[in-house]
C-alpha cells in the first residue's frame, strides 16, 4: 500500500527544485518544471511501488528539465550566467571578510554552472542532495561505473573551472 501522494512526494520539494534550478540555471523555468514534474508524478503515481520516492521524483524532474532544454534550444540561447562582479570595497575588515566568503560561494556556483550538464547533475545529486551512487544511476539512467567515473571527472573539471574563475586570463 502506497502512502498518499503529498505525504510521500512533498518532502522532496527542495531536492526537486534544487536539481531543476541547477539544470536549467533559471528560477522561472525551474519553478515551472518542478510544477510540471509533480503533476506528471501524480498521474504516474499508481505505478510507483513505494520504493525510493525521492529518486523516483528526481528522475521525473530530470526528464522534464531535459525536455524543457531541448525546447529552448530552438530559440536563441540566453546569457549563460552572470560574470563575477568583483566590486572593490572600502569597508570594515568584518565586512570584507564576509564578502570574501560570499564571493567564494559565487565563484563556486559560477564554476558549477559552467560545467556540462551531465557533469553538473552528478555533482548536484551527490554533493548537494547526498544521493548514493546507486540512486544517481537510477535517476540519470546510467550504469554505476559511469556514475563513478563521471563524478570523478566532474570534480576535476570543476576544480579547473574554479581556477579559471580566479585567473580568467588562463594564468596559473
Amino acid at each position: 500500500m502506497t502512502p498518499p501522494f503529498e505525504q510521500s512526494m512533498l518532502p522532496h520539494l527542495d531536492a526537486a527544485y534544487n536539481l531543476a534550478r541547477w539544470l536549467l540555471r533559471n528560477e522561472a523555468d525551474a519553478r515551472d518544471s518542478v510544477q510540471e514534474a509533480y503533476l506528471r508524478a501524480f498521474k504516474a503515481y499508481d505505478r510507483f511501488r513505494g520504493g525510493d520516492g525521492r529518486a523516483w521524483l528526481l528522475t521525473i524532474v530530470r526528464n522534464v528539465c531535459y525536455s524543457q532544454l531541448r525546447r529552448a534550444q530552438r530559440t536563441p540561447a540566453p546569457e549563460e550566467f552572470d560574470e563575477l562582479q568583483h566590486t572593490p570595497m572600502n569597508d570594515t575588515p568584518d565586512a570584507v571578510a564576509r564578502l570574501g566568503r560570499e564571493l567564494d560561494t559565487a565563484r563556486l556556483d559560477a564554476a558549477l554552472a559552467a560545467l556540462p550538464m551531465e557533469m553538473r547533475e552528478v555533482i548536484v545529486l551527490h554533493e548537494l542532495e547526498g544521493l548514493a551512487y546507486k540512486e544517481i544511476a537510477a535517476v540519470a539512467g546510467i550504469p554505476l561505473g559511469t556514475v563513478m567515473s563521471r563524478l570523478a571527472r566532474a570534480r576535476l573539471r570543476l576544480q579547473r573551472e574554479v581556477r579559471a574563475q580566479i585567473f580568467p586570463e588562463g594564468k596559473t
Partner: peptide, 11 residues
C-alpha cells in the same frame, strides 16, 4: 563545495 555551493530552496 558542500559548505559553499548554493542549495536552492523551493520558493
Amino acid at each position: 563545495r558542500q559548505e559553499k555551493l548554493t542549495r536552492h530552496r523551493a520558493p
